[in-house]
Design a protein around this nucleic acid. Structure first.
Lengths: 224, 224
DNA sequence: CGAGTACTTGAGACGCCTCAAAAAGGGTGG
DNA sequence: CCACCCTTTTTGAGGCGTCTCAAGTACTCG
């Protein structure tokens, strides 16, 4: 039951993360609500999130925004920028961040000569692809209620893995606009769905945190 | 204008394809409408499509189906199965297929020792990820009409690249049910959208082929 | 405490869905 | 080469889920 939400986690587990640690060039702090990278810019660095939440997104010329992924503590901002020189998306911070920076050039050069490193990073990208495809299923097939429930369960599982869940409560810096843009809904409807989940005593918002009150029933709501 | 639909193509161009050619173990023919691989099975082989169309999909327990990608001639069925031992999706043929098979084990072993190979295959997976994310934008933000128009333009661009477009007409073995399952719609609505495109003289169905009658206006319909 | 931001709630509209039945294709065997 | 059957597509009618617009309420932070 809890399994399905754990299956795809840890796309950048100890293995890949430790393999690149020697290429770290230091860390950087960033404030909340900053645009870290902008679509179309050349990729100049490779970064892993140590603290805080960020998200990757793409803006359509008419203003529509799709959030591609939410980046949680421990995760690389976007692994696949190791293979491309132009950014195809933008990145914003939700909270204050601490980033670990890497020497991107050196990492790329090393990959070319070190099959084991390139393989492990390729594996992590392959996992990202599977995650992206599971989001595709949500957007293509699931109802708004299912999508919201799954997003909550996914975040919970990811954070639990990093030991960032207390009881069943975890920090939740997303505005409803973010959830809307991640799940292809309007903020108004996100609000109604949250009301429904709250009314059914499945979750609760406590300040900037979210509590899962009934895990089993939330999984049911999340659908097959 | 035509650019935007070309940008993400060729995820398995000459580079990666030729790098692995020496691991080919031969070819295999498969009939139309066969299930080649089933979700949950162990991955036993790695294959590239030489001829014909196939698609990767995932079935939810209640019968909903999401098509994850359509595999066209020249493309690997699923590159990221080089990094995982369990299939997270199923694959069916749309037409008769010719597959080139590879020695998956040898390829993986070689990647671990040959950084250049692992890097190039990683690059191809990174491109797949970008493609998957562009589908995410379609499903999350675009209207049914835009999605269908973009799918047509995407297939057209991919096939043109392989020189499989005559004039602006190309083979089109997809049933409307497939389009529906790829784009998160019902077949009934796909039919109505196609009527609209046909009525506006943008495309036409000729037997099992599709013709683009007015490329520029189809691009407009495809949205920003 | 005030001002801005986020959230909630209501009412009405619209896009897409469901169900159903008819029409059009497309193979196949006689 | 036609007649038949099965699959696919089309069309219609009505319903539901989600959107839009708008106004009111509740936070949050300086």
């Amino acid at each position: 039951m809890r399994q399905s939400f754990m299956a795809l986690l840890d796309s950048f587990g100890g293995d890949a993360a430790s393999a690149i640690s020697k290429y770290s060039t230091g860390t950087r702090l960033t404030a909340a609500r900053r645009t870290l990278y902008r679509e179309g810019e050349p990729v100049t660095e490779f970064a892993q999130l140590l603290e805080g939440w960020a998200f990757r997104f793409k803006l359509l010329p008419d203003g529509r925004r799709q959030i591609l992924s939410i980046v949680l503590p421990g995760e690389p901002i976007a692994l696949h920028t190791l293979w491309t020189d132009d950014l195809s998306f933008s990145v914003q911070s939700l909270t204050g961040l601490e980033l670990r920076l890497f020497d991107r050039r050196a990492l790329i050069d090393q990959m070319r000569s070190d099959g084991s490193l390139a393989f492990r990073l390729g594996e992590a990208v392959a996992r990202e692809l599977m995650l992206s495809e599971s989001r595709l299923i949500s957007l293509g097939q699931r109802t708004a209620l299912e999508r919201v429930a799954r997003l909550i369960l996914y975040l919970h599982a990811r954070l639990k893995q990093r030991d960032l869940v207390e009881g069943e409560t975890f920090p939740f810096p997303l505005r409803q606009q973010h959830i809307a843009d991640a799940l292809g809904m309007t903020p108004v409807h996100v609000s109604r769905v949250f009301s429904e989940l709250r009314g059914a005593q499945l979750v609760d918002r406590v300040g900037a945190s979210l509590a899962i009150l009934d895990y089993a029933r939330l999984v049911e709501v999340a659908g097959p």
